[in-house]
């Protein structure tokens, strides 16, 4: 049973999430402010933290920073706005993913699962990831579409590898650039646009309506299985 820490100052939402997640087999701890969030995280060692950015006492960013000081627990940020500087800041500060209010429960559950899976990644990333007609063999470094092998440049492959390894999870632009191009990069988002477009042309059925390589505008990219 995975443990989740829910941090939100809205009692109604806290209650609804607790009931929903508990009924689906999660071990839920719910708190209403940042201080108790840090305290509860230290006490219960959750597998994932669901964090609302608007808290009465601390800034959501401070909570992210506080957690990152000693833990790499996945943090999913709850935000009330689709594009918000706060969310980007939170992701930059070390949050792993975000969900916009109001959200569908199944989407939230999928994100929670992806986050927990990423955490266990060290133990067992599947060697082969299949998504629709795509088959990505991470061990052999090959990609096939409808059984046909697809040729990728080394950079394209590296990019795809990072995204597939974190399948379902948001990978921020900065994270991708640093991982694929090197630590000196971080702002060259135009590289990402170019390479992701190339990947879509090679991998997606309809590159203009991608189903696997999803853009989260202003935030990053997500590989959906």
């Amino acid at each position: 049973m995975s443990r989740v820490l829910v941090v939100d100052d809205e009692p109604g939402l806290r209650r609804a999430l607790t009931i929903n997640l508990s009924a689906r087999g999660w071990d839920v701890t719910a708190v209403g402010d940042g201080t108790s969030a840090l305290e509860a995280a230290a006490r219960t060692r959750p597998d994932v933290v669901l964090l609302d950015l608007g808290l009465p006492d601390l800034d959501g960013l401070d909570v992210v920073a506080g957690l990152r000081g000693w833990s790499d627990v996945p943090i999913i940020v709850l935000t009330a706005r689709t594009s918000s500087a706060d969310t980007v800041d939170a992701l930059d500060a070390g949050a792993d993913d975000y969900v916009t209010k109001p959200f569908a429960m199944d989407v939230l559950l999928a994100r929670l699962r992806a986050a927990v899976r990423r955490r266990g990644a060290g133990e067992g990333v599947p060697e082969v990831v299949e998504a629709g007609a795509l088959r990505v063999d991470l061990a052999r470094r090959t990609v096939t579409r409808h059984g046909e092998p697809v040729k990728l440049t080394p950079t394209e492959w590296h990019l795809l590898q990072v995204l597939v390894t974190s399948a379902g999870r948001l990978v921020t632009q900065t994270e991708l650039l640093k991982e694929v191009w090197g630590p000196a990069y971080g702002r060259e988002t135009n590289y990402l646009r170019v390479y992701v477009a190339q990947l879509r042309r090679k991998l997606e059925e309809t590159p203009s309506q991608p189903r696997h390589l999803i853009t989260e505008p202003g935030m990053g990219y997500r590989f959906e299985v």
């Binding site: 609804a16 009931i19 929903n20 009924a23 689906r24 009330a80 706005r81 209010k101 109001p102």
Partner: peptide, 21 residues
């Protein structure tokens, strides 16, 4: 959005056929 989120999360829970509450 905040009350909407609560609304939606609650209703999703109530409507989920797989869930026994």
């Amino acid at each position: 959005r905040t009350p909407l989120a609560t609304l939606k999360a609650s209703v999703d829970g109530l409507r989920d056929p797989e869930l026994t509450l």
